[in-house]
């Protein structure tokens, strides 16, 4: 250490290096913003989908599930649940509706959220929209 770096050289590497990479990161962020319309499925981002996203958040779904691989690892990945359920929003809604309020003895079970029909549709549409995001062919297969 002593031979390679003096204190002021070390300090300059810290300030200079950090500044350079912060600026690079901002440039890359700008570029990412320009490119993601091609992959983020924004053409299908309707009001209903936005409502579904809000419901997803306000019921803390990410506390058990992953979505595009991020979240908790207690319940299945949902970014491709639309495909997994045979591209049927009805199947997604039926699953959410059918959860027993008191769970299943000894097993994991999703809570019963008592959603209205409109909320169920919004959630299903949100999951359908997420399914359409192009994420480098992830997840690797239908099982998520």
């Amino acid at each position: 250490m002593k031979e390679l770096f003096t204190k002021s050289v070390s300090r300059n590497i810290y300030y200079g290096g950090s500044l350079f990479f912060i600026l690079l990161f901002l440039v890359l962020t700008f570029d990412t913003h320009k490119r993601i319309p091609a992959t983020d499925n924004r053409e299908n981002l309707t009001e209903q989908v936005a409502h579904g996203k809000r419901l997803w958040e306000e019921n803390n779904c990410v506390g058990c599930h992953t979505l595009l691989g991020e979240g908790a690892y207690f319940a299945p990945e949902l970014a491709n649940v639309y495909d997994r359920f045979g591209q049927s929003t009805d199947a997604i809604k039926a699953f959410i509706m059918s959860r027993p309020a008191n769970g299943i003895p000894g097993r994991r079970s999703m809570p019963q959220f008592n959603f209205t029909d409109e909320e169920l549709e919004a959630l299903a549409q949100f999951l359908k929209y997420v399914n359409g995001i192009e994420a480098q062919n992830w997840p690797p297969n239908i099982q998520g």
Binding site: Y14, F25, T32, T39, D40, E70, I133, A135
Partner: peptide, 26 residues
């Protein structure tokens, strides 16, 4: 200085390892 320099030099763009599969550019 050297430790924190390396932390930021690697870590800032290292954010990219979370941008693999969320719909961001290749």
């Amino acid at each position: 200085y050297i430790i924190v320099a390396m932390a930021l030099i690697t870590g800032i763009i290292g954010t990219g390892h979370h941008y693999f599969f969320i719909g961001t550019p290749g």
